[in-house]
Each structure stands twice: as structure tokens, then as C-alpha cells.
Design a protein around this nucleic acid. Structure first.
Lengths: 219, 219
DNA sequence: TTCTCCTCGGGACATCTGTCCTTTTGTAAT
DNA sequence: ATTACAAAAGGACAGATGTCCCGAGGAGAA
């Protein structure tokens, strides 16, 4: 049962008395898990799957902030800072979460030091990686970010292509335009790093892509 | 005495038994408080003054991450993640800190739920603002960042000028070059927004600068 | 099949920004 | 005052990236 996995992943056993308050939430691929600007209802502890986090400016510009695997927690900033949801979270694979309602946290877990330790570690991790990616996003040109994105997304899965249908979205995530992604891809084609066919871009030389990415990752 | 200020700022009273372990640390303006890559020795709780946080790439490129006033804590990421110091912290004004050695935290405060709550709030705040500035740094052009920097730095003080001696540093902090800052300043001069005289740049129309900044801040 | 419309890739151009180098300016020594 | 040196400002050019737009190809309707 999911609570066992929870305990294994997060090194914390939820008190028996609270178990009946905890629920499981699942999401399909590409489904929005959280939407920026809405109210948060509790903590989401990732048990399986992957999701990515992106944020939007008023201008509509978007930017990939993070790509998450277990362990990963959503809702922490919002509950601790008592604010609206800060970023969009979208399932990159089917996802399963253990959900702890905000009220239960406030009443039962807020002063549980072990539970706090989980949150502290998660926040510190997020902050460290956010700091890194902040620098990267600001100082790396778009071709590096695109390569880094590809390396991040397909680190283990065998996805060696980008569907052309997603080009627009991919571009937004790395903070640029479809036009520019096309430009980069064309350049890579000329160098034999990728090939395009119908609706997909196939990567022929992963080592080259990794080289271009300069070890930047959105983990 | 500083511990009283600490209690007032952070809403937490350090247990009497620990008071003798706590020290006060002060820094002069422009002094390095923490240097990236070194070992952390404890938590630093800002009591008075301001400092800024910047990080550096291997290339030497630098980027302003945050501008801090009370309440602000240093050392949290490093102690919680058990890693080396992530960023440079430099005093922007004379600064006073309450210093809690790492060992005291591990032994006495780690499972103190109230102390954890302070850290959680601070981390959540940092993460939220880091997320915002990440987007800003990536998606805003340099003139917006420069305006935002000026607004952030002089939000309350009456500093209405940049000393020319700092131009290089200012440029680095907003992630660009002195050449480009000069270009932006020249443009602002032509528009009558600033004037230059001897070693300083005086801002004539704060409202224009605020407008250019698009409400971006590095706080 | 043919026409229409929509989307995608890419050309052309403008803007932003970095690098390199020349000119200008300020300062100190003679 | 003159000269010499160092630091700052700015010109010139190149590369990165955004915007606008056009032509080609595919999907659906007639």
C-alpha cells in the first residue's frame, strides 16, 4: 500500500491516528496537478512518476523551473508562506501522490520535528537546485538549455526524439521561442547531431548533445 | 543585548542553557561574510544591516541572487544539505549576526520544532523569491534588471546614485558587462532619466526607473 | 479530385548583448 | 604646466535571439 512506499521514500511513518485522513491522488500524463494562482489544499508527496514545474510571467512567457522525481514534495512553499500556488506542476509521466490535507498538517504535524525535518531537507534541496538553475537560465545560451533539457527529460527513458507537436511547448519551457528552437535544430541537423522526419526529431549523437549541455541539468 | 533582538525578530527564544554557546559576529561594509566553496560553521541570523548574495560560475560570471534584510538566515542550505557554501555573501552595510555553531544545532536544536519552524519559513521564503528572480533573470532584458536592481537597493535609503567605481560590480551582479551598463545609462541620460557627474550617476526621475523595472525586485 | 485553411519551417530584419579596441578623462609625478 | 599612465567611456563589429511574414505541405470539406 502507498503508505509503506511513503515511509520508505521519505523515512517517516505517518502516525496511525492520521492514516484515515490521508488519500492517494493520481494524475495522467500531461495532466495539470497544480495550477499557478489557485489555492493549495495540502501537501503532495510523490510516490511514483515524474512531473515538471514551470512558472509564467504576466507576459505569458514561461520557464521550466525543475523536473521532479521521488522524493519530491509539492505545496510546501504555499502552505509555509500561506500564499497561492506559485507554479504550474504538470505530470510528465503517470504520477501517484500521498496527499496530506493542509488542516491535518496545521493540527497534527506542524510541530512534529521529524516531519519538519523532511520538509527542511526537501526545501533546502529545492533551494540549492533553484539557485543553480537560476544562474544557468540567466547565463547559458538557448542551445545549451535545449541540450540540457533533452538530457534531463530523457536521462533514463529511451525517448530519443522530440515530437514536433511539442516544439512550441519545449521552446517555452526553456525560455525561448519556437523559431529559435527550429534554428538550433537546423544547425544540429547540418552537423548530423539530429535528423528530422515527419513529426519527430531523432537524436543521432547523444554524446554531442551531452557535450553541448555543459552538464547543466534541470533536475 | 543581541539575543533580545534575536527573539524579537525571529519569534524564538534560545534556551538559556545554550546562551553561552551563541556568539555575535559583525562585518564591515563590503566585507565577505561567506565565500562559496568553503565549509560552513553554523547558522547566521541577521540582526541588523543588509547583505547581498551572489553566485559565480566556473567562467567567472557572477549573478545577484538576493538582497537581504532582517529577518534573514545564512547557512541553512549548507547545514541541511551538508554541502559546501553555495554562494558569496557580502555586507552591503555594516552587519550584525547571531551565530549558532553547527554542532549546537545538531545536538540541541535539530529536533526543536519551534526552531525548525523558523528555518522552514525562511527557506520557503527564499525559495519563493528565488523562483521569481530565476524567471526574471532569464526572461528580462538587462535594462529591466538594472532598473530593478536600483529599486531594490535604494528602496528605503536615499541612495539616488551609483558610484562609478562600482559600475563593474553592479554590472556583474545583474549578469551583464560594464560596457552594456554604460550603454543603458547613456540611453537613460539621453532620455533625461539620469545624469552623470564626476564619479556618480544621479537618478533624476525615479518614477521612470520604477516603470522600466516592471515591478521586478531582487528582495 | 480540388479547393481552402491551418500549421510548420525557415527567410529577412531588428534588437539585445558581448568582445575588442580606440578615444577620452582624470591623476600623479616631473 | 607638461607628460605619462591608468581607468572609464564609447565606437565598431559579431553573435544570439525575437518578431514578422511568406511559401510549402497536410487535413478536411465540397
Amino acid at each position: 500500500m502507498a503508505l509503506k512506499q511513503f515511509a520508505a521514500i521519505y523515512h517517516y511513518s505517518i502516525p496511525n491516528t492520521l492514516e484515515k485522513e490521508i488519500t492517494i491522488r493520481t494524475y495522467k500524463i500531461n495532466e495539470y496537478i497544480l495550477t499557478a494562482g489557485e489555492e493549495i489544499d495540502g501537501f503532495y508527496f510523490l510516490i511514483s512518476g515524474k512531473y515538471f514545474v514551470s512558472s509564467q510571467e504576466i507576459t505569458g512567457k514561461e520557464l521550466l523551473l525543475r523536473y521532479c522525481q521521488t522524493p519530491a514534495i509539492m505545496g510546501d512553499i504555499e502552505i509555509l508562506e500561506d500564499c497561492l500556488i506559485q507554479s504550474n506542476c504538470i505530470a510528465a509521466e503517470p504520477c501517484t501522490f500521498v496527499f496530506i490535507p493542509k488542516k491535518i498538517y496545521e493540527k497534527e504535524l506542524k510541530y512534529d520535528a521529524s516531519f519538519s525535518q523532511i520538509l527542511l531537507r526537501e526545501l533546502a534541496y529545492k533551494l540549492r537546485t533553484c539557485t543553480i538553475s537560476s544562474r544557468v537560465n540567466a547565463l547559458s545560451p538557448a542551445n545549451v538549455r535545449l541540450a540540457a533539457f533533452l538530457c534531463t527529460v530523457s536521462s533514463d527513458s529511451q525517448v530519443s526524439y522530440i515530437s514536433t507537436n511539442n516544439l512550441e511547448e519545449t521552446a517555452a519551457l526553456i525560455g525561448t521561442t519556437k523559431r529559435h528552437v527550429n534554428r538550433i535544430l537546423k544547425q544540429w541537423m547540418d552537423q548530423g547531431i539530429v535528423e528530422r522526419e515527419n513529426d519527430e526529431v531523432r537524436i543521432l549523437q547523444w554524446d554531442k548533445v551531452k557535450e553541448i549541455s555543459e552538464d547543466v541539468r534541470f533536475e
